[in-house]
Simulated assay, not measured.
Amino acid sequence: MLYLKYKPLSFSPHCLFLPLFTMVGSTSVLKAIPQDILNRLWTAKETRVSLKHLYILGKQVNKTRQTPSPAIKIPSEFLCSELPIRYGHMLKMLHAHPLATTSPAMQTVANRYVSDTQLLTRLSVPSTEMESSQFLEVLRTLRRRQCGSLLRLRHGLLTETQGDERAQDAVQGFLDQCNGLGVGVNLLIGEHLCLHDKGHNLVQQIDPVKVAQNAIQEAQRYCAETHNVTAPQVQLVCKYPNLSTTYVPAHLHRILFELLTNSLTATIKHQKTAPVKLTLVKGHEDVTIRLSDEGGGISAREMHSAWRYHINPHHKALLDHDQDDAQVEFDSKRGLRFARLLARYFGGDLNLISMEGYGTDAFLALSRDDAVMENYPVSNLTETELY
């Protein structure tokens, strides 16, 4: 399998990142990083994975549970090699952005990513039970910190460019790139942790109906607590008893949660009694999910706003303490733009069709082709091409 191929980096990271980390603590965080070191990270090519890669890998690991297991060691080697490359690509995008030298949020996040990359480059492939435990703890820390870093970047950039529509538009695309990298990193780390902590794959053969039922319950609970009312009913319709596909249950849950909370909130605000309707259909190429509400619809101006990242006041409270990433990791509301990014990551899509004055239909397509490679953000562009 291509996914399991071990790719050693072309430089010795243990010695390079010690001075790099020291220099990044200065006031001009990104400009102080030696360009030759960054270039070596930036030009390293990522190895893209598919749902099929991850699913087969998990099955192999579960068949071989002795310690150390060859099936576990190979993915560990892959993570030790692949994660620094992906973190390097994030540093490349942060460095290339026009706000790199002026944005406090950008400098803070760049500092955190360099610190995390330094931690990664100190890792060695675990060969004992103690080393395996230490390796897993580092991965847990990296996952929490990345969630916190991405949220800090989003909140900081949107706050700093508030009132400048042109700058806000540019920030939207940039956040897509950063979040796209984040999805891939979290997927690789999450798959490894899930296999060790829970004994099963993160990528699974899922029943979308069961995932939808859980998302409905969580969305109704969220809306009831937020608006202090009884949440509207959701009618779930599926005429395919054996509906299944290979996917990441957490990704589908997140997408449906974002869609459902929006529909339920619109229904509450417009005081409608008609239930929200969730329909699942199986096609040859896709599993399609339609969510229909009678919550008043979305105007053209509001539709433009719906597909944007927004400042969430709740995020500021989460970010008051710089190292408190545990709560951030489980932050509940991230918006439709993030949901669409997740849908597109493995060949799917998410669209809205609205009838202003009546209601909105959301259409989510999940590709049933599990060999589709991840939609990894382009990493081999120059600064000029990026921005």
Rank of each mutant, 00 (worst) to 15 (best):
V276E: 02
D320S: 13
P98C: 02
L142V: 05
E218T: 11
R144N: 14
I72S: 15
G357L: 00
M23W: 08
Q235C: 04
S132V: 07
V229W: 03
Q60G: 08
N375L: 11
G199R: 05
L188C: 06
D331E: 12
V109Q: 00
L352N: 06
R86K: 04
D116C: 09
Y387C: 02
D361Y: 11
L41G: 05
L136Y: 14
K333H: 15
G295A: 02
L187W: 10
R86I: 09
S263Y: 08
S76E: 13
L278P: 00
D369Y: 06
S332F: 12
V248I: 07
L153S: 02
Q323L: 15
P70Y: 11
K210L: 15
L41M: 09
Q134K: 14
Q35A: 12
V248Q: 07
V372E: 14
H284Y: 12
F346P: 03
R122F: 10
A167E: 10
F78N: 03
V185C: 01
N111C: 08
P70Q: 09
V49W: 02
E218N: 09
A32F: 09
P19M: 02
G335R: 03
A339P: 01
Q66I: 13
D286L: 07
V237I: 05
L188M: 10
L318I: 01
T382H: 00
F363M: 10
Q172H: 01
H155L: 04
L30G: 06
L187G: 06
K269L: 06
R344I: 12
Y55T: 04
V281F: 10
T273H: 08
T360P: 01
M106W: 13
S305L: 14
P232E: 05
C80V: 15
T141W: 12
K7R: 14
T27F: 11
L83S: 04
T121W: 05
F363T: 13
A71I: 12
S379G: 07
C223L: 07
L280W: 00
A224L: 05
L4A: 04
E285T: 15
R166W: 12
T382C: 00
E294C: 13
R140A: 09
S263H: 10
T47G: 01
M23T: 05
S10N: 14
P19I: 00
R301K: 15
D116F: 13
L236Q: 00
R290T: 14
P34I: 04
A110S: 05
C147W: 12
P75E: 00
R301Q: 15
T121K: 02
K333Y: 15
Q177P: 08
L243Q: 05
L54G: 00
T273L: 09
V49P: 00
I85T: 07
Y3G: 03
V183R: 05
G88Y: 08
A362I: 07
I37T: 14
H192Q: 07
A365K: 15
Q233N: 05
L366Y: 03
D164I: 05
T64I: 07
L157G: 04
N242Q: 08
W42Y: 15
F174A: 06
P13D: 01
T230E: 09
A250L: 03
N201A: 06
D331S: 10
D116G: 09
L256N: 03
C147Q: 11
V183Q: 04
T161Q: 05
G347D: 07
R254T: 11
